[in-house]
Design a protein around this nucleic acid. Structure first.
Length: 967
RNA sequence: GCGCGGUUAGCUCAGCGGCAGAGCACCUGCCUUACACGCAGGGGGUCGCAGGUUCGAAUCCCGCACCGCGCACCA
């Protein structure tokens, strides 16, 4: 064979070249544009009758860089989109980015810091202009990176959460919810980040489950009218005592009953505050006396409100103490103030005890700073009514025992268990703080009257404001980033306008995302969809596993343990591999670096986007986690694609070498077998895709390509290709046809390589006119029809073929066990068993290729019961041995070359195994309970099994006798 | 504290009521004209522990242990 230019395939897969070619072809064919364009016009070759299938991308932050979680999530989405597109749906994948309020503001602020510019001095408008400039320059990087991955988005529809249309959507929802009483403004104790100087929602605060080490200080508050007596208050935050407005005890706490209604003197200040009774106090905790600081603790705020106490705010925005504190403490950071306060208390003899204590300390998710509770005016979304509606849509109803699932919901989670996590959050939901005291974001569309305090809210500037602009000022705050994200599936398609896109593509089909934003995003999108359109924004929600490093730790930039998807695709030098670790400076940096050096002394050779994708899909099982290391991408993805590449080369070379025309032979048994297997593969792949079982998609395809196609069919085909022009043409047609199906099935997962291979295969098949009536219509694989999975399977044939495979393996084993040279050719006589009718015929049909695979000089087939053996194979022949199989007995003669002792040993082992199984089966069958209780089919199966085991045992004993006799 | 996952071969994971599986790693033999990123053969597991249900349990139920994740917070 020559691998002449006609084969048209490089000897080695070059991912970069294949990827570039892929994008060229897809783009010039506008392959990922929808049937109907955003203006409502059908594309020239489009078909508007195709049912839409829509995914909106979880918009990455404009500050983002592609990490493995993105790679996984977007691979999944692309697999789904490409699958449905090939299936004939009008597939739309909407790309876009998120303005990411706080993170972007922080990034740009740091840039300005580096230039020596103070953003506050720059002023709001100038700062925002700088952010837009930054966004123009860097904001699109992540989408470019997604393209490298092969993301088949309709890039014409790229959206940004701060686009004019999307911003109007934000204002529209704000206005609507405000008018419906679902958005309100109020003075509440909120989570405050002193670093970013803004309020945060509860979901943006993280608390270590075991708390953080701290102290519990017991402080004496002397009675105002009798300083010899005191109450001892226990607190973890002595510095907030300046904001105390009362001391509370439990009304039924006998120890303190006499103190209720009296007054104590607040240490370090001399202020006098009342002792109140409130059942919100835990008697068991600390001393049972709780200092009430309404401005700096949500629980205290509630108690304060119940008792009509005026909160006293003692802190500034940056968590330094303000002028409400005694002079000595003003301007001190809260932790300095704590040290000083404790010292002062001790000096005053008021510090009774200090005990170590684990404190449940909340930290801002983004800055990592400990949260300060701060009383301030903020905007909130009233979540209860929204959550109730969402719960009902998921089939929950509120009964005596609370919310319960009473019927099938409209939303399907995959894996299904996420629904209860979702529902639990909805049930326990609290109001959402949506105002942020930053500049980058959607400015709250509310105006305050300078005199009256009246509030005007409008999608556009309200008329009363326009009429007297000087009397009004717009609210300074911007909205939480998620306040635009929760509209994403609607707003990207044009809502609130009644656009053709919205009419056609909303609600979308599937949402794929990380479990980390189930509450932040998924739940809230449901709320917005239901509230504004009365529809859920998608039907299925897929939650992908969390990507972990090889030792089970979550990948993160700060740990330096991430595997960079772009390094996987393009490759990286040793220095490049080390860089993220060196930048992160984790505590185990040396160890990590040593590991990189040991595993990749010469760097990492890029495996390409397809190998990255295949690996991720193959490992994407329904568990909660996915452990990854750089080497996996080579082991799984690259190896598989190389195999596919080489198998395709084989097929293309075969196609090249057969006659251009001439009659096509009848399909041989192995042709029918591989077609049956390919059909099985197609239906399993479809089932797996339909049920979001991505690991199975990968596994099924891997097994089919490697084991069925390469290990068996290709090997058999080699013989047929040499046995005459008609058989060769038939074999080439099967090779090409099955490979074509395989490329179709693989395309959603490995789009670039399959598109490349398909182009060459199609050309070759056309030239030789071998499509056999199944020529794909589309030029591009990506727009070609996905195999429907309904092709015929011949299970009987597959069963017989398995016996044939066992025969070939059996001969190989025999040769290995007997210590024969691998190239020693044998003669074999195969006697059929009545248990598998048709096996003899199959074997006869495949005599030639089987002889080749098992290295046999001849294969004779005799019916059950056995015709006379040919000379030299009959009983008594020297060195005669047989392969005992449920479906046949194959005899051969090893002559003097065989190690009969080793074979005897082998037969003994086999007898041992068989004996154990025979005993357990017999025991089972003699158990009356089994006979009575088990499914009759199972009993029948066991009977058949026992018969077969007994039969094989007998034959093996006979063989053992012969081997012994030969001694 | 409450909830959700996980614990199966050295490693990564499938299997989820009726003979313990795959890939990698390991051992042996092969450069067989698609592929040594390969081919053929092989060894390797009391399915976390302890009970129960069942004729039968890796699989279902109840505890326990350990690992991971989420929610809550008694100041």
């Amino acid at each position: 064979m020559s691998s002449g230019p006609a084969a048209g395939l490089a000897t080695r897969l070059d991912p970069a070249a294949v990827e570039a070619e892929g994008w060229d072809r897809w783009e010039s064919a506008r392959a990922f544009e929808t049937e109907v364009d955003p203006g409502g016009r059908t594309r020239p070759d489009g078909d508007p009758r195709r049912e839409p299938f829509t995914i909106v991308i979880p918009p990455p932050n404009i500050t983002g860089r592609l990490h493995m979680g993105h790679a996984l999530n977007n691979t999944i989405q692309d697999v789904l989109i490409r699958y449905r597109r090939m299936e004939g749906r009008d597939a739309l994948w909407v790309p876009g980015t998120d303005h990411a309020g706080i993170s972007t503001q922080t990034v740009v602020r740091k840039h300005l810091d580096a230039e020596g510019v103070d953003y506050r001095e720059l002023g709001r408008d100038a700062f925002i202009a700088r952010v837009w400039e930054w966004r123009e320059e860097f904001g699109g990087v992540i989408l470019e990176q997604l393209r490298k991955l092969g993301a088949s988005c309709d890039y014409r529809r790229t959206r940004f959460t701060m686009d004019e249309g999307l911003s109007r959507a934000v204002r529209t929802v704000f206005k609507a919810l405000y008018d419906r009483g679902l958005i309100y403004r109020g003075k509440r104790v909120v989570n405050w980040c002193p670093v970013d100087r803004t309020a945060l929602s509860d979901d943006e605060v993280e608390t270590a489950p075991e708390g953080e080490p701290g102290h519990l200080w017991s402080i004496r508050y002397p009675l105002a009218d009798d300083p010899r007596h005191h109450l001892t208050v226990a607190t973890t935050r002595p510095e907030t005592l300046f904001g105390d407005v009362a001391v509370a005890v439990h009304p039924e706490d006998a120890r303190y009953r006499g103190f209720i209604g009296r007054r104590v003197q607040l240490p370090l200040t001399g202020r006098v505050i009342p002792v109140i009774a409130d059942s919100g106090v835990e008697r068991e905790f600390g001393t049972g006396c709780l200092k009430i600081t309404p401005a700096h603790d949500p629980h205290d705020f509630e108690i304060g409100e119940r008792h009509g106490l005026e909160p006293l705010n003692v802190m500034n925005e940056d968590a330094t103490l303000n002028d409400a504190a005694p002079e000595a403490f003003r301007g001190l950071d809260r932790y300095e103030a704590r040290r000083e306060a404790v010292e002062a208390l001790e000096a005053a003899g008021l510090l009774q005890a200090v005990t170590p204590h684990q404190v449940p300390l909340g930290r801002a998710q983004r800055s990592g700073a400990p949260i300060e509770y701060r009383l301030s005016d903020q905007w909130f979304v009233r979540m209860r009514p929204l959550a109730d509606r969402a719960l009902r849509r998921s089939g929950f109803e509120k009964g005596e025992a609370g919310w319960e699932k009473v019927r099938e919901g409209e939303l399907r989670f995959h894996p299904a268990r996420w629904e209860q996590v979702y529902a639990r959050w909805l049930i326990e939901i609290r109001d959402w703080t949506i105002s942020r005291q930053i500049w980058w974001g959607h400015r709250i569309p509310a105006w305050h009257h300078r005199e009256t305090g009246e509030v005007a809210v409008g999608v556009e500037t309200p008329a009363e404001v326009l009429a007297d602009p000087g009397a009004w000022r717009q609210d300074e705050d911007v909205l939480d980033t998620w306040f635009s994200s929760w509209l994403w599936p609607m707003s990207t398609l044009g809502w609130p306008d009644d656009t053709p896109d919205l009419a056609r593509y909303f609600p979308t089909s599937v949402l794929s995302t990380d479990k980390g934003i189930l509450f932040f995003w998924v739940a809230r999108m449901n709320f917005a969809g239901i509230e504004m359109t009365d529809r859920l924004p998608y039907r299925d929600v897929y939650i992908h596993p969390t990507v972990l490093d090889e030792r089970g730790a979550v990948m993160s930039k700060s740990k330096g343990n991430g595997v960079d998807p772009l390094a996987v695709i393009n490759g990286a030098t040793l220095a490049e591999l080390k860089r993220p670790v060196e930048e992160a400076r984790p505590t185990n940096m040396k160890e990590l670096l040593r590991r990189v050096e040991r595993n990749f002394p010469d760097g990492f050779e890029g495996v390409g986007a397809d190998a990255l994708r295949f690996t991720l899909v193959r490992l994407c099982s329904e568990g909660q986690e996915m452990r990854l290391s750089l080497s996996k991408f080579h082991e799984i993805g690259r190896r598989f694609l190389t195999k596919l590449w080489n198998a395709s080369r084989f097929a293309l070379i075969a196609l090249d070498e057969i006659d251009d025309e001439g009659p096509l032979g009848e399909p041989q048994a192995e042709d029918r077998w591989i077609v049956s297997r390919a059909n099985a593969c197609a239906s399993e792949v479809r089932r797996a895709l339909d049920s979001f079982d991505f690991a199975a998609v990968g596994a099924v395809l891997y097994r089919f390509v490697w084991n069925d196609f390469c290990d068996w069919y290709v090997e058999l085909a080699k013989v047929r290709l040499r046995s005459g022009p008609e058989a060769a043409r038939r074999t080439a047609a099967t090779l090409g046809g099955v490979l074509s199906d395989t490329l179709h099935l693989l395309h959603p997962v490995t789009p670039f390589v399959t598109e490349h291979l398909f182009a060459r295969l199609r050309l070759a098949m056309d030239r030789k006119d071998l499509w056999d009536g199944e020529r794909p219509e589309a030029d591009l694989l990506t727009r070609s029809a996905f195999p429907d999975g309904r092709g015929r399977r011949d299970r009987k044939l597959e069963e017989r073929f398995e016996a044939l495979q066992r025969l070939v393996s059996g001969v190989r084993k025999l040769r290995a066990d007997a210590g024969l040279p691998p190239d020693l050719r044998l003669r074999v006589r195969v006697e059929e068993s009545p248990d598998l009718p048709g096996f003899g015929a199959l074997l006869a049909e495949c005599r030639e290729p089987v002889a080749s695979l098992a290295r046999l000089t001849s294969v004779s087939v005799v019916p059950p019961g056995g015709a006379p053996s040919p000379p030299g194979l009959g009983p008594g022949a020297a060195g005669r041995v047989s392969i005992v199989d449920p479906a046949f007995e194959a005899q051969t003669v090893l002559g003097e070359a065989g190690d009969l002792e080793a074979l005897r040993h082998r037969v003994e082992r086999q007898l041992g195994r068989l004996g154990k199984e025979r005993e357990s089966t017999r025991k089972r069958l003699s158990n009356p309970g089994f006979l009575a209780g088990a499914d009759p089919a199972v009993v029948e199966q066991a009977r058949g099994r026992l018969a077969s085991l007994e039969d094989q045992t007998e034959r093996l004993r006979e063989l053992a006798g012969q081997l012994g006799g030969g001694r």
